[in-house]
Simulated assay, not measured.
Amino acid sequence: MDLRIFTEPQQGATYDTLLTVAKATEDLGFDAFFRSDHYLRMGDVDGLPGPTDAWITLAGLARETRRIRLGTLMTAATFRLPGVLAIQVAQVDQMSGGRVELGLGAGWFEEEHRAYGIPFPKEKFARLEEQLAIVTGLWQTPVGETFGHDGAHYQLVDSPALPKPAQRKVPVLIGGQGATRTPRLAARYADEFNMPFASPEDSERQFGRVREAAEAAGRKGDDLVYSNALVVCVGKDDAEVARRAAAIGREVGELKENGLAGSPAEVVEKIGRYAEAGASRLYLQMLDLNDLDHLELISSQVQAQLG
């Protein structure tokens, strides 16, 4: 089971804080550092000092880290034109030496669009599908050839389709709980399917839908990586779990029900349930980015037991 660290900087984090967490992620042996792509805080937090841009952050981290993978859960298709996004991701991939992954979603948080003057269209899923076709199409176009797209929402004419990523294939992540369109889209474009904040039972059901859609599209179901994103709250004892839950404004019982919370042994047991459901990768949502001892405990007492 791969463990990746997943952060939510819109809740309040500077670039320097994210850099510290990313370096700890690398030093402690985790597989990757991912971040959300949001511009507005959620819930009862002040969000100070304010949002950081996902791809600017990852560009900086690309030059400050050496091993870990870097990516987004999920970049909103509403935030960037697809041609521009393809350039940004390719450049950051070059800057990292080929360690970038792109999680791309339709966008859902209407308030942040209003707050920063970003259009929030009704036909978000159709736009996402075109974005995926364009971004992957630009990267796959051979050097010296051009790319075009004549869609309902985006038109590209004689694009040189440059620059290219350092990787031959930047992994694309798609996620969500939709029963029909989401699996179909993942089957066509995704290298990884992510199920966010869901039970093992719901995850197994959705993973099965994606496998069926992949096979219907002429792929093997096992061509995709299957993953979950879950909030994490681990402590050496009950008091430490309670302290960490309080620090993020959550209840221990709710976290144990809906996330990965409790002692290292409890968390390892629940990870096993997600593995049985078909997941081979977990994104651990770290909500207190100043608690580096939490990362160290997960590394030494949880990750070490997973092999």
Results as ranks from 00 to 15, higher is better:
Pro121Leu: 08
Met95Asp: 00
Leu81Arg: 04
Asp53Arg: 06
Lys122Ser: 13
Arg41His: 14
Gly272Asp: 07
Leu19Trp: 02
Phe34Val: 08
Ala24Gln: 12
Ser280Gln: 08
Glu240Asn: 03
Arg4Asn: 11
Pro9His: 06
Leu28Gln: 03
Arg168Leu: 14
Thr136Val: 09
Ser36Pro: 03
Leu40Met: 14
Val21Tyr: 06
Lys220Arg: 15
Arg188Glu: 14
Leu104Gln: 00
Arg114Ser: 08
Gly43Ile: 12
Thr7Trp: 06
Ser199Asn: 01
Gly50His: 11
Thr78Cys: 09
Leu128Ser: 09
Gly83Gln: 05
Tyr116Leu: 10
Arg127Trp: 08
Asp150His: 15
Phe6Cys: 00
Leu85Gln: 05
Arg99Trp: 01
Phe30Ser: 09
Arg80Asp: 00
Gly47Arg: 05
Glu269Ser: 12
Ile87Arg: 12
Thr65His: 09
Val100Trp: 01
Thr52Leu: 15
Glu296Phe: 07
Gly144Lys: 04
Leu58Tyr: 13
Val157Gln: 10
Tyr226Lys: 00
Leu306Met: 06
Pro51Ile: 12
Ala214Glu: 05
Pro9Phe: 10
Ala279Ser: 13
Glu26Asp: 12
Thr65Gln: 08
Gly107Lys: 01
Leu104Met: 06
Arg127Cys: 04
Ile248Pro: 10
Leu128Gln: 03
Ala24His: 09
Ile174Trp: 02
Val143Thr: 14
Asp293His: 11
Ala179Thr: 08
Arg67Trp: 12
Ala76Arg: 03
Leu287Ser: 04
Ala190Thr: 06
Leu156Pro: 10
Asp293Glu: 15
Tyr226Asn: 02
Ala214Trp: 06
Gly278Cys: 04
Pro165Met: 05
Gly97Trp: 00
Ala166Phe: 15
Gly221Ala: 09
Ala86Ile: 10
Thr65Arg: 04
Thr146Gln: 15
Ala277Gln: 01
Gly98Trp: 03
Leu138Val: 14
Arg273Val: 07
Gly259Tyr: 04
Ile174Val: 15
Glu8Ala: 10
Gly117His: 04
Glu129Lys: 14
Met195Phe: 07
Gly148Tyr: 09
Arg243Trp: 07
Arg35Ser: 14
Gly103His: 00
Glu215Phe: 08
Val170Asp: 01
Leu85Glu: 00
Ser299Pro: 03
Tyr116Gln: 03
Glu215Leu: 06
Pro82Met: 07
Ala186Tyr: 07
Phe120Thr: 01
Gln94Leu: 14
Lys164Ile: 11
Leu224Pro: 12
Gln11Tyr: 14
Asp46Asn: 14
Gln131Pro: 02
Gly249Leu: 12
Arg184Glu: 10
Glu123Ser: 11
Leu48Pro: 00
Glu123Trp: 01
Gly235Val: 11
Gln131Phe: 00
Glu110Pro: 01
Glu123Phe: 05
Glu296Cys: 08
Gln177Asp: 07
Pro51Arg: 10
Ala54Asn: 09
Asp238Ile: 04
Gln285Asp: 05
Ala59Gln: 11
